[in-house]
Write a protein that binds this DNA or RNA. Structure first.
Lengths: 237, 237
DNA sequence: ATAGGGCCAATTGTCCAACCAATCAACATG
DNA sequence: CATGTTGATTGGTTGGACAATTGGCCCTAT
């Protein structure tokens, strides 16, 4: 086990140089979230590069969830304000390649969701708790089918992660859930007794929110752990 | 709080179509990790698209840590075997944009590293434990400076995450650490008494490995939690 | 027979010029 | 004042061209 002082020599490509300069510009505060980048043609001129190279750099930013691009005058590439689905594409491909397994994604949630519930119990603002309760109300509507319910479930868990006030946890937990969204939906649509399942899940959510609102961190963590496990058990994963 | 059944209409671009088809090809097992993609020109012909569109798709795959590209005959785009630094670029930009904070990355580690140590205590193979001990030996060399030590420290934590046998945890924990690597190195180089620090950190590592080897999960978790906290306290973060 | 150098083919990297499509603001028109 | 039109700007796409890199091949000298 030795550490060589050598580092690989790799020909830097132009679009990588552009990416580095853009990153530095962001770090230096010259451009920040919400700002619009110059047009591809202007960037090409400023970097003294071709439009193709600039496009490749922009394409990468888009794939990383850093920028969103729209054609049209007054539009262009805009640095995103909230990195919602930054990890979505990445995890989808990593799953496809079997570099990560569905089981590991599920286990990942069983670790971080309970932590989120605990942290939320200690940090949640009254506003955050109100938003959770609003989701509960929406879930109480007997009309909602599995697909809409799943959307509400996603919102619920995101709200808790946000209340835990850890940006990175929000990011990866959201990514972990959406990366296996399709599989979950398939499984949900095959649940034998949907109305009963819906009521039970909503009930578990209600208990969790209650624990968070009463600042019972230990209970919130335990309830969440049980909730996640029973959920995946129910849909057979 | 209502759920509309509408979804945004977005003009699909050619490179996105190509990405989808490539993902499907991977899911269907037509191509898998380690395989070499057809050349850009061949892909352009098969998709009936221009080389530029194919290039943008390949560029995205590269940014996601899915493929590595090298010019030259017999080379080309190869699907990576291990997604080592898939998250590196993404987290770097998310950090630059202040979408995630350094504090959240550190807290993230204080949650998942102890869990890894616990899981490793229950799941580690003898081989994995041997690799951890090998890292300890290398760390015992008084010659190693902060930079090399940090590299060994990275290897140590990766080995534990691997022993915990959760692919996703390995991925995100590695990404979390490398995303703030530069900051950590700067901080490490300013440690007042480096020899003492080195010995202390190695000692903590040794205790953790010992707990894992003896399958004392509770101890491993506690020791790791203390280790991570004291580490960041020491370098003033 | 083998080691080494040099050539060649295939591939990616880059650039360019042009055109298409989408978008929005300003203007014209009723 | 509402509506439709137009023009400018922007990203999307294409095809072609040349440079740089790599690896395999042959050929020669030892």
């Amino acid at each position: 086990m030795s550490v060589t002082p050598f580092r690989p020599i790799q020909g830097r490509r132009i679009f990588e140089e552009i990416l580095d300069q853009l990153e530095q510009a962001i770090l230096d505060g010259h451009i920040s979230a919400g700002d619009r980048l110059p047009s591809e043609r202007q960037l090409a001129e400023q970097f003294n590069a071709s439009r193709t190279s600039v496009r490749e750099a922009v394409r990468v930013l888009e794939a990383l969830g850093v920028a969103k691009v729209k054609p049209g005058a007054e539009n262009g590439a805009v640095l995103v304000e909230k990195p919602d689905d930054a990890l979505r594409l990445l995890l989808r491909f990593q799953l496809a390649l079997r570099h990560i397994s569905i089981a590991s994604v599920i286990e990942f949630r069983t670790v971080l969701e309970p932590w989120s519930a605990r942290a939320a119990s200690e940090r949640a603002t009254d506003d955050a708790i109100s938003r959770m309760q609003a989701v509960l109300v929406a879930m109480g509507n007997p009309i909602v089918g599995p697909a809409e319910f799943h959307q509400l479930d996603a919102t619920f868990h995101i709200e808790i992660a946000r209340a835990a006030q850890n940006d990175l946890v929000v990011l990866v937990l959201d990514g972990a859930r959406t990366s296996i969204e399709r599989i979950m939906l398939d499984a949900l649509s095959r649940v034998p007794d949907w109305p009963a399942t819906r009521v039970r899940i909503r009930d578990e959510h209600a208990q969790i929110v209650n624990a968070i609102a009463k600042r019972r961190a230990e209970d919130a963590e335990t309830l969440m752990k049980r909730h996640i496990r029973s959920f995946y058990d129910e849909i057979g994963l």
